[in-house]
Design a protein around this nucleic acid. Structure first.
Lengths: 208, 208
DNA sequence: TAGATTGTTAATCGATTAACAATC
DNA sequence: TAGATTGTTAATCGATTAACAATC
């Protein structure tokens, strides 16, 4: 289960495998071959086997892959079993939507607090998550060993917040803003969800 | 400006170039070299030049690239000037957040309606976008030549809605659900925003 | 003109695909 | 055992990087 030098392309397919395997498991299917899984996902059997073999041999010759075992391995690889904690910074419509709809726990992250500067939000509890004053963000993050910070706040405050969070020792920033967080501390990883880039790509793809 | 055979890797960098160029323009900078742009974006100068040359030569030897011209070209490449129309299907927290926060027009898409099955929402106007009964979605899409459908509705209804929309002739589906839309009509493009995949990738990256 | 920087070709690198021996 | 399918090595393909002649 070594992960040295596994390319990001492989990594980004892992959640997708996980998703398909979960579906299959839910359908009561117990095993699957690389060929069958590849066909369903629009990949090649070779690629599926290569991908899994980056982390070790999870299959069995002549049989295929045991779905629940494979799922468990991927879960472990992705760190979904690590019990990470997270906070949400910015409880506007998007932050609110994430707190309400997104099943963080299913992805191994427990949201332990939310932060906003708006007085009317502070003290409220949204889907069991309490909203605090952003003024206390830094000390909270330090005091509670927060692993992940979700940025759903307005552009203007993003860079500074990201910098502070990195210095406060968070391990990952889940960035929903369209701001690029280029030069952040090396020990802090940034994962972007750029809605803007996504719709522009779609625009390209529908343009002849 | 031919786009035959340009790889998706190149395409996905285009919105990012666009973003950086917009920043530079806002800062009053008029020209930039491939080297300088590459440094800012964490790419190589070669890659920047190769990328732009997929679509034609927008630079000038000994000078660099004129930022506003380059921006205009990218806008054209991405189809941001085509005046696409879109509708939002599912006005839950996320659909609501998009209507309220996301500047569709800046990305060349005009949202002309939203749809939901919940009676209390139907008839409301959110940020100038009227909410209709989903029962009328298909005929609306056909009647108004809708280009893009934004899917922000619950899992259960996703596959069928996507299928209907493809058959109704929409060109692109912007899919915010965690449902994979594998076997959709060839003429309809699907662009996914998989929050789930994104946070799992982040989880991996912070896991040692 | 000299200097700078592009456009473009060639070289390198990495990822995907194919093939097949190992083995369940 | 025979059949199936993996794990893994080798071949291919594509993308990135380097180099440099063209030219502003």
């Amino acid at each position: 289960m070594d992960k040295k030098g596994v390319s990001i392309a492989v990594i980004r397919r892992m959640p997708r495998y996980y998703r398909y395997l979960s579906e299959l498991e839910k359908d009561g299917i117990g095993k699957i071959s690389s060929k069958e899984l590849a066909d369903r996902m629009g990949l090649t059997a070779s690629q599926v086997r290569q991908d899994f073999n980056c982390f070790g041999g999870f299959g069995q010759q002549g049989y295929g892959y045991n779905i629940s075992l494979l799922k468990a391995k991927i879960s472990e690889i992705l760190g979904l079993d690590r019990g990470y904690t997270g906070v949400i910074v910015g409880v506007g419509h998007l932050g609110h939507a994430l707190i309400m709809n997104f099943n963080f726990e299913e992805r191994g992250v427990k949201i332990i607090a939310a932060f906003d500067i708006q007085k009317s939000l502070i003290g409220q509890s949204i889907n069991g998550v309490e909203v605090f004053d952003t003024a206390g963000l830094e000390s909270f993050v330090k005091g509670n060993n927060v692993d992940i910070v979700v940025l759903t706040l307005p552009r203007a405050a993003v860079r500074e917040t990201a910098k502070n969070m990195a210095e406060a020792g968070v391990r990952g920033i889940w960035n929903f803003t369209s701001v690029d967080l280029g030069s952040i501390k090396d020990s802090t990883v940034v994962e972007n969800v750029h809605f803007s880039d996504s719709i522009m790509t779609l625009s390209y793809l529908i343009t002849k």
